[in-house]
C-alpha cells in the first residue's frame, strides 16, 4: 500500500515538473488560448491574420492548424465587424476571443464594444450573455509608428459592463486569458506588447486562481512606499523597487491586474501600511486610472497618508514619434523621482 502511494506521489511530482515550462509572455497566452479551445468547443478565436499567419505577434500561432478554420477565423479587415459579429456568435452560444491587431485600431469597434457588448446583459435584464473576449496588444517602447503604442484602457474602464484586465507576467497571462474566456462577462484583455518576449516559468496544469480577474497581486512586499502599477509598468516598478532597496527604501509593488474593477482593498491596505503611494501607467495621467486610484486612496486612507498620491505616466499629447517615446513613457528614473518627492514631502 505505502509503496503504491509513494509511486503515485512521485508520478504527480514528475507530472507537475513536466507541466511547468519556461515560456515567453506571448506563448503563455497562446497556451492559455489552446487550453480554452480544448476545454470548450464553443470557444473561438477570430481576428485579422490570426489563422495561417498566427497573428502579427504570433500569439495565435498554430491554433488554426490544430482547431480548424471554423474555430480560428481569419476575419475581414474590419474591427467593428469583428466585434459586432462576435456579439452575434456569443448570442448563439459561442465564446469568441477577438484579436484587435493593435491598440490604436480598436476604435472602429469602440461603438460595438461600448454601446452593444457592454450593455447586452443589462439591456436584457440578464437574459442575454455575451462572453466575448477582446484581446488588444497595447503600450509602447517598441519603436513603432503611429497608432501602434497606445494605452486606451481608461476609455474602456469608464464603461460599465466591461471587465478590463491586463496581465504582467507569463503565468498571469496564461491564467488570466483562461479566466477571461471562462467569464460570462465581456472582457477587454490588454496585453503589454513590450513584454511579449519576456520569459517566465508557467505552470500549465494549475487552474487559474479564484477571482484572478478581480484581485490585485502584491508583486513585492515593502514598507515605505506603495508603487501601484499594471501591465507593462509592473516591471518598471519592480526595477525601481530594486534601486530603492539599494538606497535603503523599501517599496511595495501592487500589480492591479484589473482596471475594472479595481481591487481597492489591496491598494488601500498597502497604503495604510506604507503611508505613501505612487501610481505608474503608460497611459496619459490626465483622466487616467491613476487619478481614480489617487481619489480612492485619499478617501479611504487619508489619515495614513504622509504625502499626496503621485502619478507617473504619459502626457496629454498624442503618443509621440518613436524617437521620443522613451521620454514619454514612465521610466525607472521618473518613478524614482516621484518616490523622492513623496519621501521629501
Amino acid at each position: 500500500m505505502s509503496t503504491a502511494t509513494e509511486q503515485t506521489t512521485e508520478q504527480t511530482t514528475a507530472q507537475s515538473e513536466r507541466t511547468t515550462r519556461t515560456l515567453t509572455f506571448a506563448k503563455a497566452i497562446t497556451e492559455g488560448l489552446r487550453a480554452s479551445l480544448e476545454s470548450d468547443d464553443h470557444v473561438m478565436v477570430m481576428g485579422e491574420d490570426v489563422g495561417r499567419l498566427g497573428g502579427v505577434f504570433r500569439v495565435t500561432d498554430g491554433l488554426q492548424k490544430d482547431f480548424g478554420e471554423a474555430r480560428v477565423v481569419d476575419t475581414p479587415l474590419a474591427e467593428s465587424g469583428i466585434v459586432g459579429s462576435a456579439i452575434g456568435l456569443a448570442l448563439r452560444g459561442y465564446r469568441p476571443v477577438c484579436e484587435i491587431q493593435f491598440d490604436g485600431f480598436v476604435f472602429p469597434a469602440f461603438d460595438q464594444i461600448t454601446t452593444q457588448l457592454a450593455k447586452m446583459h443589462y439591456r436584457s435584464r440578464g437574459r442575454l450573455q455575451v462572453p466575448v473576449v477582446i484581446r488588444i496588444p497595447y503600450g509602447g517602447g517598441i519603436g513603432a509608428v503611429e497608432h501602434h503604442s497606445e494605452s486606451p484602457e481608461a476609455l474602456f474602464a469608464h464603461t460599465a459592463g466591461l471587465r478590463v484586465v491586463t496581465p504582467s507576467t507569463p503565468q498571469d497571462a496564461y491564467d488570466m486569458i483562461r479566466a477571461a474566456v471562462a467569464s460570462p462577462d465581456p472582457v477587454v484583455f490588454f496585453e503589454p506588447k513590450g513584454r511579449y518576449w519576456s520569459k517566465g516559468e508557467v505552470d500549465l496544469a494549475a487552474a487559474p486562481a479564484e477571482g484572478i480577474l478581480d484581485r490585485a497581486r502584491v508583486a513585492r512586499a515593502g514598507t515605505d512606499v506603495t508603487l501601484v502599477a499594471y501591465g507593462p509598468t509592473v516591471a518598471t516598478a519592480l526595477k525601481a523597487a530594486d534601486e530603492l532597496a539599494a538606497e535603503g527604501t523599501s517599496a511595495e509593488v501592487v500589480d492591479l491586474r484589473a482596471v475594472s474593477p479595481i481591487d481597492f482593498p489591496t491598494v488601500v491596505d498597502s497604503v495604510r501600511r506604507t503611508g505613501r503611494c505612487v501610481v505608474v501607467h503608460e497611459a496619459p495621467v490626465f483622466h487616467g486610472v491613476g487619478g481614480e486610484v489617487a481619489a480612492r486612496v485619499t478617501e479611504e486612507a487619508f489619515y495614513s497618508l504622509q504625502a499626496p498620491v503621485l502619478r507617473v505616466g504619459g502626457f496629454h499629447a498624442p503618443y509621440p514619434v518613436a524617437k521620443l517615446e522613451h521620454d514619454y513613457l514612465p521610466s525607472v528614473e521618473r518613478v524614482l523621482d516621484a518616490v523622492d518627492r513623496s519621501l521629501a514631502y
Binding site: 459586432g84 459579429s85 452575434g88 456568435l89 456569443a90
Partner: peptide
C-alpha cells in the same frame, strides 16, 4: 453585424 455573427453561429 450581430445578425451576421449569429448567422455564422
Amino acid at each position: 453585424l450581430h445578425a451576421a455573427g449569429y448567422a455564422m453561429g
